[in-house]
């Protein structure tokens, strides 16, 4: 049994079926990619995993625990972290504070202790600051740690957002198009970070990406969605030779 199991998940918005009886499993420690044409339901799938949407039917198991009805913050405390497709950072806060927010579920300080800020609170802040500094070091964003995130460039914001998710020390990391809108050099950097995260921290990663080169190079397994239906699942080689997938991307052979 994998770290994450999606069983028969269906998501409906009124008459639109965004996900149609999708089932698959993600193995612990692998890079798993979700691909598919625009509007196929990839982001909806991630939203179901991180809890922003609740599937209309079906269930989601994380490490054997049924998390289908859990609220997003509860899933985060279980170790599911996410970076968004459209950057969702806290623009007025510095990079450091954004990353410290990533550690929210790992910290304990309450309201009163925070206001008094003495002894234990201070020690906790320092201890978690050290962890955050490791992430900063890892992503090579030392020089911008005190800069408000809103003033940073797009590529850096994407990197900070990945960092914020990493700061949570996730068991499973959801990356929604981490390379969208980047030039090939930035893409290469990002791909290297993803490989590093995977190898050094042994984090399970679920990746949505449109760049097929990246997806085929990085992934252990790939799931292909089209109009909410799972039309292919397997290793990169299997997916490349899957006639249904080719059809979804290129259209039917005799139609061309």
């Amino acid at each position: 049994m994998g770290i994450l199991e999606i069983k028969d998940a269906t998501l409906k918005f009124g008459g639109v079926t965004a996900l149609d009886h999708v089932s698959y499993g993600v193995q612990e420690g692998e890079i798993f990619s979700l691909i598919g044409p625009n509007g196929a339901g990839k982001t909806s799938m991630l939203n179901c995993i991180s809890g922003l949407y609740k599937p209309s039917s079906g269930s989601i198991y994380f490490k054997g625990e049924d998390i289908t009805r859990y609220k997003p913050h509860k899933r985060a405390s279980r170790g599911i972290a996410r970076a968004f497709q459209n950057i969702e950072l806290f623009p007025q806060l510095s990079v450091l504070d954004n990353l410290m927010l990533g550690r929210h579920v790992r910290m304990k300080t309450g309201l009163l202790a925070g206001g008094i800020y003495w002894g234990k609170t201070q020690r906790e802040e320092i201890e978690h600051r050290k962890k955050v500094e490791q992430v900063i070091d890892f992503l090579e964003i030392e020089d911008i740690r005190n800069t408000p995130v809103g003033t940073l460039s797009y590529g850096l914001q994407k990197r900070v957002e990945t960092g914020r998710a990493l700061a949570l020390e996730p068991e499973i990391l959801l990356l929604d198009e981490p390379m969208a809108g980047m030039n090939s050099e930035e893409k290469e950097d990002m791909a290297r970070y993803i490989i590093d995260i995977h190898e050094e921290m042994n984090t399970t990663i679920i990746l949505i990406e449109h760049d097929m080169g990246v997806v085929m190079d990085l992934s252990d397994h790939i799931a292909v969605l089209d109009f909410g239906k799972l039309i292919g699942y397997g290793t990169p080689e299997e997916i490349q030779n899957n006639s249904k997938v080719i059809e979804a991307y290129l259209g039917e052979e005799n139609a061309v």
Binding site: L89, P91, L93, L101, H104, G114, T121
Partner: peptide, 19 residues
Amino acid sequence: SRVGRAFIAVRDRDVAAEV
């Protein structure tokens, strides 16, 4: 500290804060 940062997070991006 932790709680105050969470307040600011709720102000800036509530969806991200929740996740």
